[in-house]
Amino acid sequence: MVFVDLIGIDKTASLLLALGGSQIQVGRHRVYKNSSVVKEIGEEAALEIGEYFCGGVFKVPLGKKFLSRYLSAKGMKQQEIARTLHIDVATVARHQKPFQAGKAGGPSSQKRREYGR
């Protein structure tokens, strides 16, 4: 995730938790001290984002999978993560499984095979 490289993992998590899914405006060379972005991650981090994206308006991703893994690493239980992110606890469990290379298809592919579709 680009944000982690720019501003670090903790500030990225704060940004996604507070503003994920919304549009933000960040200047390339200056930021407004009253902006929600600056209040959440600080002026320096906001400038880093603005410089990287050449300023402008853009949408902050939801980052549910990232946040699920981040909060789990911070010691939060699956039930708490599900409530915080407004997702099902089964989704949280799925997010926490390591990526398995070479395995084709997911649950939906398996269901299609079972039902002959």
Score class of each variant (00 low, 15 high):
22 S>E: 11
41 I>C: 05
26 V>Q: 05
5 D>T: 02
41 I>H: 03
18 A>H: 04
5 D>Y: 02
17 L>Q: 13
40 E>F: 00
43 E>G: 05
20 G>I: 11
10 D>C: 08
44 E>K: 04
41 I>G: 04
22 S>P: 01
31 V>L: 07
22 S>Q: 13
30 R>I: 06
15 L>Y: 03
28 R>F: 05
44 E>D: 04
46 A>G: 06
33 K>A: 03
39 K>Q: 13
44 E>P: 00
36 S>A: 14
7 I>N: 07
46 A>C: 04
48 E>H: 07
32 Y>K: 10
38 V>F: 15
34 N>W: 02
43 E>L: 06
22 S>T: 14
41 I>F: 06
14 S>K: 15
28 R>P: 03
9 I>S: 05
17 L>C: 09
19 L>A: 09
10 D>H: 14
38 V>P: 12
12 T>W: 07
41 I>M: 04
33 K>S: 04
12 T>E: 13
16 L>K: 13
46 A>T: 06
43 E>A: 12
43 E>H: 08
29 H>W: 07
38 V>Y: 14
32 Y>T: 03
24 I>D: 15
19 L>T: 08
18 A>Q: 11
25 Q>N: 08
21 G>Y: 02
26 V>S: 07
29 H>Y: 12
8 G>L: 14
36 S>Q: 12
41 I>A: 06
6 L>Q: 07
17 L>W: 09
27 G>Y: 12
13 A>N: 08
20 G>A: 12
26 V>H: 05
38 V>R: 14
37 V>Y: 07
21 G>L: 02
8 G>N: 14
29 H>K: 10
32 Y>Q: 08
